[in-house]
Nucleic acid binder design. Structure first.
Lengths: 143, 143
DNA sequence: TGTAATTCAATTGTGCACAATTAAGTTGCC
DNA sequence: GGCAACTTAATTGTGCACAATTGAATTACA
């Protein structure tokens, strides 16, 4: 077996799956006016608002180079507000606007659509979730 | 269970795994002077050269908007040559240079390093590969 | 108290991804 | 032969990802 064969590389399978998922979300989220990474940010906000940019970065493993312009676009779309923390001027707190809060209702049906589109059983998805989590953890810690 | 909880979403697990893998490859491939997508293109070329841009797009599921600038960077790095097909001027054929061919030797050890870094057994990786392939297929076909 | 180290966000620059469009070339069909 | 339909790359524009740097603010501590 040739180690360099594209078909043999799990890396490519992960990469391709990620893009396929991204593409599916793009179609689903178009009517909400969100991209996939913007949707991920909104998920965190719907869970526990307000959050700082720092906290968003930890939750999503993204840095400010990605988050700053993304949050500006969400702000321009009227879904979030950003304000400096009065007690620590270094940190920026992100809050939902009313429109941002309301968007949650429209987003509720998305996960089910995606789960259906994968053609997999919930138990398989749970397995996959667990396996990928373990792999991500190991890769993050590896040199 | 809250369907919109970030932790419950397989989508995020796939997304995060893809980026973790990308990051690990970035470190591994830095000394070869390749990015991860460039490495994927080189894998195809090492397998079956020459190939057209079209064929690369099919193999990697990427369009010319991604491939054209990427191939120009590989050409600027002296790893590939691009030339129009004489019999069909629409198609561009990509070939390895000598340096591009030789780079394969240095790339041979990369897959093993990655496999180790995932902390998973080969059988688990094979399972994961199969599962993701199935999911990607289903998502691509879904509306 | 004053300074060094740290924290946090923003910015800059490079590269990937994809939609939409453009342009050139080929093929099919009358 | 001539025109319509199709194929193939390239380009343009938008957005994500991350490294490196900058700058402001806070904290630690000598």
């Amino acid at each position: 077996m040739n180690a360099l064969l594209l078909e043999n590389q799990v890396c490519f399978a992960v990469h391709a799956a990620s893009r396929a998922l991204d593409g599916f979300y793009r179609r689903q989220l178009a009517e909400l006016g969100l991209t996939y990474p913007q949707y991920l940010v909104m998920l965190v906000l719907w869970e526990r608002e307000p959050v700082t940019v720092k906290e968003l970065g930890v939750a999503l493993r993204l840095d400010s180079g990605t988050l700053s312009p993304l949050l500006k676009r969400l702000e321009a779309a009227g879904l979030v507000r950003r304000e400096r923390n009065a007690s620590d001027e270094r940190s920026v707190v992100v809050r939902l606007t009313e429109a941002g809060t309301e968007l949650r209702q429209s987003a509720l049906r998305v996960p089910e659509h995606v789960a259906n589109a994968t053609g997999m059983h919930l138990s398989e998805l749970a397995d996959l979730h667990r396996t990928l989590g373990r792999m991500t953890q190991a890769l993050t810690e590896a040199t």
